[in-house]
Amino acid sequence: MKNDLDLVKKCQNGDKESFGLLYDKYIEKIYSFVYCKTHHKETAEDIVAKVFMKAINKIDTFKEGSGTFQAWLYMIARNTVIDHYRTEKKDANIDDFFDLDSNDDIVRDTDIKIKLEKVEKYLHILKSEQRDILIMRFWQDMSFAEIAQVIGKSEGACKMNLARTLKKLREEMPADMFIYLLLVGGLIR
């Protein structure tokens, strides 16, 4: 299996098929990331389409040695989500769904509302960057090295950010939440 860098180099030389292989590899991950931040199927699809269009049009800007292709793609995805909300809501402080006020005209899929029921309110209290790092580390299984490339900061800063997030959640998450988890986890009956 060809690695990402080889495929990118081929793309940069005009080989569309190589980009197709990269697309197949990352479409679901990028869609999952974007959907977690938008909570709406059509919005997520629109943004993901923009992400891959940008990627293919700007593939020549990807530099070897400057990070992984995955991190580069996630960076484009994150920025495209931010642009979407700031343009749509004309508010520079809104980066994704979680920054929306309950008074905003929110379009959202019902099923994700149910799926995130247990943790959503905690995601709301976090800042955009904290939330993204949490999502990328816990749900997307990305390394801190890659997260740092996406966020544009050092690994240390990203780890520090997550440490602060956990401290904040420790203060906010009540004891009964832990008991629920222990029940669900079968550790207590």
């Binding site: 005009g14 479409i27 293919i56 986890g185």
Partner: peptide
Amino acid sequence: SFIKEKPEVNIDKDFVIRLKNKLMNQEISP
């Protein structure tokens, strides 16, 4: 708790195919 509550996200397969077709029609400048 967060790992456990990771939402299952199902992507529309038709969307995946449509988008790929559109991308493959793009020209990449060497």
